[in-house]
Structures are given as C-alpha cells and as structure tokens.
Design a binder for these strands. Structure first.
Lengths: 235, 235
DNA sequence: CGCGATCTTGAATTGAATCAAAGATCGTGG
DNA sequence: CCACGATCTTTGATTCAATTCAAGATCGCG
C-alpha cells in the first residue's frame, strides 16, 4: 500500500516537475501539497469542470490531454486550447473566486491530481511564497487567452486560419526527412471549432492543401511537406 | 514643490483606491510604492506600450481611458478592451517577463503612474505579500481576455455582436427616464474593430436599430430605449 | 466658410455556411 | 473474417451575410 503510493507519487513528481505550479515549491511544501491533493484517472470525454460554474477544484494534469472550450447554449462551441501534462487548470478561478472561464474535458485517458479550492486557498495562506507560482501560472493562462484573441480577431479567411492552426501544432510533432508529422487527434469538426469555421470548409481546404502539395496525409496523420508555403497561406 | 507633490499624491491615493493593485498594500508599502513610481499626464493618442515588445514599465491608470488593441502588420486591428481609472496595465508581462500582449494607447487625456519593470520586481521582492495583488490583477486581465474570446468566437452575426457590444457598455452609462444613455466615444470604425465587422456594417446596423426603435441617437450620444429587444438581438 | 473626418446608403461581389448525398473508416459482435 | 452501425470525411449545389467599392451627406472645428 505504502509502496504503491510511493511509486505513484514518484511518478507524479517526475511529471509534475515539467514546469507547472508545484515545480517551485520547497521539498517540505511539496510533501504537504501532495498530501492534500487527490490523484485519479479519468476516461476520455470526462468533464472536469464547466464554464460559468463556481470553482470547486484546481486540476493538475499529470498525463493525457484536456480540451478547453467555451460553449453557448445555442450549441456553438469554441475550442480554446488543449492542455498537456504539467499544466494547471482552473487555478485563476480558484484563486480569484470567479466562475470558471471555460469547460475542461479530457480528450484522452488522463491522470490528474485534484485539489479542492478551500484546501488550495488554505495551502496558499500557509505558504504565501506560493503566490508567486500562482501569479506565474495565471500569467501563462492569460497569455494564452490573448494569443487566442489575436488569432480569432486578426486572422481573416478560412485558409489563413487553417494554415496557422496546422503550423501551430508544435506540441505533438515529429520532424522526418520529408516534412513535419503532425499528430492531431482532432476531427475536422474540432479543427473547425478551434479556428471558427465549419466542418465542410476544413475538409475542402485540407483537400486543397493536399492538391497544392503543402501537406500530405500519411494514413491517419498529417505531414506538413511545405512549411514555407503554408506559412505564406497564413500570411 | 513639496506641497504640490503631496497634493498630487493625495489625489492619486484617492483614485488609486478604486480596486487596483495598490489597494491592498499596507500604508508603509504604499508610501514606498509611491516613491518609486513616476506620475505623468499624457495627451490622447499617446502610445504607452506596444504589443510584442519586451516589457519596460507597468502602468497604473489614474484618470482617463486607454484603448487596448492588437494589430497585425496587414493593418488589421482588434480593439481588445478599454481600461478605466484604477486599472493596471502590463502587469502580467512585467511580472512574467513575457512580451506585451497588446498595445496600449490613450483614448483621452490621461493621468498615469509608471513604474519601471525592474523597480516593480524589486518592490515585489521586498514585499512578497504583494504577489497576491499581482495574482489578483492578472486574474482580472485573464478573465477579460477569456470574455473576449467568448464573444469573438461564440457570437455569430454582425447584429448580435453589435447588440452585445452596446449592452456591454456599462462603465459609462447613465439611466434616464427613457432609456440608458451610452457614452461611447468610439467611431463606427472603432466599434467595428471591437466586434470584428467593417465600418459600413456598423453604420447599417445602427440605422436598422434606430428604425426598429431599439436605440435613438440623441446628438452625439446613443440611448438604448428598448434594452429587452436589444438583448433579444444579442441572443 | 471650408476642410478633413466621419457617417450613410446603394449596388456588386464574394467567401463561407448550409443543405444534401455519397463515400471512407473504425470498432463491435456475430 | 465479415457485416453492421456509427462516426467521420468528401464533394457539389445553393444561399446568404457581410465585405468591398463607390458616391454623397453630415458633422465639428479652425
């Protein structure tokens, strides 16, 4: 039992060092931090929290991917971003007591550590030096939101938007002899929701890109074969 | 000289209490804070800082309005928001060392207090309790950015966008017997840049709203005469 | 008064959404 | 291993909202 816990936590620690909230905690703080957070696994498609609700927990993503989106009751959706291991979700909301800004839903099987807001705030009170971490994380979140505003507002034309989207998928790419392989688990619909165009338009543009030899589809993954030209599309 | 300085600073103090960064500082901290910031006045149209540049200063807006925008080299612009007295600008960037997320330009004659980043960071180091204020302010900035993403991404149709824009102008409104008077100093072009539609469309829609008696223009100001109906337009 | 900036309105154009109808792909269970 | 349904993709035809282009009206200021 103890051993199992230790092996989980050492794994967690390893992952958690990847630039997130707990990274800058002192060893003692980290131990306390660890003692109040709850680890669990979730299946894909699980909702971690919902926009406009009052914050209940802070989520530390240890493994897997989480889709961050905004939804209107009219059924429209904007995929705001995808979070990767090491990121903290809902931190700003928990801290400020404001409602969640977006909905977080697992996009793959995930390992997460969850911390109730009150525990989080208590921890902060006991360890005020962690405020700096909070500020740091929130800055990142903010920069991300601003980047999205920029893209949504400044990029005109579906083609430019799609090109930008593809070029931006840095996180899960792999350089090969003949281009950059992009691991994008998104459906066309989701790509559409990320860039604000409809499903069919994504499909059409992608075919178009293929015709023009900017990208090729290798099975289920996409390869950017002419980055230069794709950048030109994005303007 | 001393007297003049004191009278300015007492004025500043009064304004600065309006919910911004310095609000939660202790009196001693506030005195120190005051000693390192530089007060000045600026004419309208003055650029305080430019997006993508490395942060040099943090700006505390004491009086006037500041337009926050994002610009593409293609000449396109998104007006992100307008800042009012009491707000802090560029705080997140100064703190995290990331480039400014947007451009800040005075929209009216302004009084501002400016603080060099290094002084700001030094102050923080000496008074770590102020980290909480930073986190607070950045949360606000972040919530704002998220709200803008939501509007840009989820609101479809120029009409809904404009209606939403008008309804949202809470800051400078005045309720009268026959509706809410909106003090919006924006030109149609600027409204367009705020909501992402072209100048002419704004003009057309506004005429349309007038025909349908949702708004009336009283000289240079606009009066929302049928808020209910306008809300329906915004969906 | 006259000038520059801003606003208004109309007509033509277009880019993307919508509607529609096949295909492709995938996982499941027989 | 194949048949099945479900989900996702492709492609074409049509429609529509909003941009663009163009020309004139109005406003506010020196």
């Amino acid at each position: 039992m103890r051993n199992a816990a230790r092996s989980v936590s050492s794994h967690v620690f390893r992952v958690a060092r990847m630039g997130n909230f707990s990274e800058q905690l002192s060893p003692e703080e980290f131990v306390e931090f660890e003692s109040i957070r709850i680890l669990f696994d979730c299946p894909p498609g699980m909702t971690l929290f919902v926009e406009e609700e009052m914050p209940k927990t802070v989520i530390f993503l240890l493994a897997g991917q989480v889709k961050l989106s905004m939804n209107s009751r009219a059924g429209r959706r904007v995929i705001f971003d995808v979070a990767y291991p090491g990121e903290t979700l809902g931190l700003g909301s928990a801290f400020s007591g404001r409602r969640y800004d977006f909905t977080a839903e697992t996009a793959s099987p995930c390992k997460v550590a969850s911390l109730a807001c009150e525990d989080f705030l208590g921890f902060l009170k006991r360890h005020p030096s962690a405020y700096a971490n909070v500020a740091d994380e929130v800055c990142t979140e903010c920069a991300r939101a601003c980047a999205k505003v920029r893209k949504l507002g400044l990029t005109v034309g579906a083609q430019a938007k799609l090109a930008e989207f593809l070029l931006e998928q840095r996180t899960l790419t792999e350089k090969t002899g003949c281009g950059t392989r992009v691991f994008c688990s998104f459906t066309h619909e989701e790509i559409g929701e990320s860039i604000g165009v409809c499903r069919e338009t994504v499909s059409r543009l992608l075919s178009d890109f293929k015709c023009r030899d900017l990208v090729e589809s290798r099975g289920s993954t996409l390869v950017i074969s002419d980055r230069r030209a794709l950048e030109a599309c994005a303007e």
